[in-house]
Design a protein around this nucleic acid. Structure first.
Lengths: 330, 330
DNA sequence: CTGAAAGCGCTTACAG
DNA sequence: CTGAAAGCGCTTACAG
């Protein structure tokens, strides 16, 4: 049988309340009493049962992270940051692979609440707005990532995709490029990256040729690369709104015997592909997903701890200069 | 205020015990009573508080997975399998990135136990045997992966590394190879893979030239590849005990203008590198890490559910034939 | 500074 | 088949 607070109280000759105060570092305990109780706790090897304390305090010190799949490297980075920050606060992190199905999300959320999980971080691109709004109305602590639900009173950890696009533009401008291609698909976040890029280029009175990709993976990139090569007035620089698009473009361009970065500079977006995994490390806009996770967990913790108003944190992207960009050769 | 079992009992005109029986699908409830209670539960939107029930049943329906880091793709696969199986059983999965520090492991374990986590899966190469033995003695439900503690009474989900090495040998033998190189470092699992390979080759009265790598990453592979090229009697086939070693060897061989698989067949081990990520997909022995995770969770669940004796499951590796192996050209 | 008592929301023998 | 009561192991006003 495990030793309980009751055993400690009896052994130390004090009441349950006093032992509880010592455990919880209440300042209202005489120093000599504290020492005596502390000594008994150690001697008996008492470990407070947090399930019992959760029943009264309504705090399990557990948070959950909803992601499409932990095998997605971006999700893994987020999970790393969340778990890391949670652990610092004596929290533990429950991972839920919810896929893309809103029903699965709702099912998970329901069980998490019944298990007394203190708060949830949503990092799924396709959650059910109604679910989030409902939780927000019942003032259940939440942090949203990856997508927003404007009407909800929740914490938010957001990326600045527009700033990322602008970073890509600045880098290429600084290298001296004057003709640009933009490859992106229609997804909203990607459009935001594109907007930041285009605005920055236009501010210099330069122009951007847009190419719409039919997706955001390597295949779509290959296709875009082929189209790029057929352009009459081939630009010297291209910004792809995802790394996979960029990789596809590079592969297509290589096939046609062009050299990167001599004939074409390429900037991607993401930063989750290890530079060592590529022959030529990709210049890209790095999304600090781990930092996002950390911020998300911190926001949730603050809400839990101080019950403070939901806040919003914007995590800035960074430029990583690999080997796929250089000065234009013409 | 949330609705409790008490509200349901009063509204339905029955006792707490009866409501509890209905929730827990006890067969000893009159059908008409069950229906009435069920109707009340739905009308009031009652959701049982599992923290309260955990306090009496000693079951939180939470399990934990200890891994070095979730950003390691092998760990992510394991976590995927564990979480997937856990979810099927109405369990949730707590992820703990314990790194390589046994102290961190002990700290996590301590807090997990206090939080009432039902069982733990150890998937870390460097855990503290003493900790595992201690938990095992206190008959705390455990599943071990990645490494064994022979004396412990625990579940085990193991890989058959020797069989994997044998698979590699069989594949190369079937292709007609007669001269072999083995590249491995000294780590115990890798030695096991090597043993399976060598024994299978020797059973055919053929011989293997061993090359010791100073590590198991790409750099070590590059180095081994260079040494391979300097051999007087160059073999036609190489088995590397990790995929990264194999990739390094391939890169080195490519540099020297040799063609793979014409001049050299290469088999790796792991299977976590996406075939699409490589110019030439690597032939490799696939460790089904997700299946390992599933098995580990299932074993833990069985212990939890039926209190049955610890068991052991061996997950078999599989051969994946990519483009780096072929018939020998001489 | 300390203790007695009630309470958190369930489950579980036990009795009927 | 059903209910009254005790109990799981803590915390928290309240009183002193």
């Amino acid at each position: 049988m495990r030793v309980t607070i009751y055993d400690v109280a009896r052994d130390a000759g004090v009441s349950l309340a006093t032992v509880s105060r010592v455990i919880n570092h209440s300042p209202h305990v005489k120093e000599s009493t504290r020492r005596r109780v502390q000594e008994t706790i150690e001697r008996l090897g008492f470990q407070p049962n947090l399930v019992a304390s959760a029943l009264t305090t309504k705090r399990t010190r557990l948070m959950a992270l909803l992601i499409p799949s932990i095998t997605n490297p971006a999700c893994a980075q987020v999970a790393w940051g969340v778990e890391e920050t949670a652990a610092e606060m004596d929290y533990n992190c429950i991972i839920c692979n919810v896929g893309a199905d809103p029903k699965r999300q709702a099912h998970y959320v329901n069980i998490l609440i019944r298990k007394g999980i203190d708060g949830i971080i949503f990092s799924t691109p396709s959650y059910d707005d109604g679910l989030v709004l409902d939780l927000s109305r019942r003032s259940y602590p939440l942090t949203l990532m990856a997508r927003d639900v404007p009407a909800a009173q929740v914490n938010r950890a957001l990326t600045d995709d527009k700033a990322g696009g602008a970073l890509a533009a600045q880098h290429l401008l600084e290298l001296g490029h004057t003709s640009f291609l933009l490859v992106t698909s229609k997804e909203e976040v990607l459009q935001e990256r594109a907007r930041g890029f285009v605005e920055t280029i236009r501010a210099q009175n330069l122009d951007v040729i847009p190419v719409e990709a039919k997706g955001s993976d390597i295949t779509a990139g290959l296709d875009a690369g082929v189209r790029l090569l057929s352009l009459a007035n081939r630009p010297t620089a291209v910004f792809a709104t995802t790394d996979l698009l960029a990789i596809g473009i590079i592969a297509a361009v290589h096939c046609m015997g062009l050299d990167i970065p001599r004939d074409l500079s390429v900037v991607g977006y993401g930063g989750l592909i290890e530079p060592e995994a590529m022959q030529l490390p990709l210049t890209t806009i790095v999304q600090p997903m781990r930092d996002m996770g950390k911020a998300a967990a911190q926001l949730l913790f603050d809400t839990l701890q101080e019950g403070r108003e939901p806040r919003q944190v914007v995590v800035e992207p960074k430029l990583y200069i690999g080997g796929t960009t250089g000065n234009p050769s013409r």
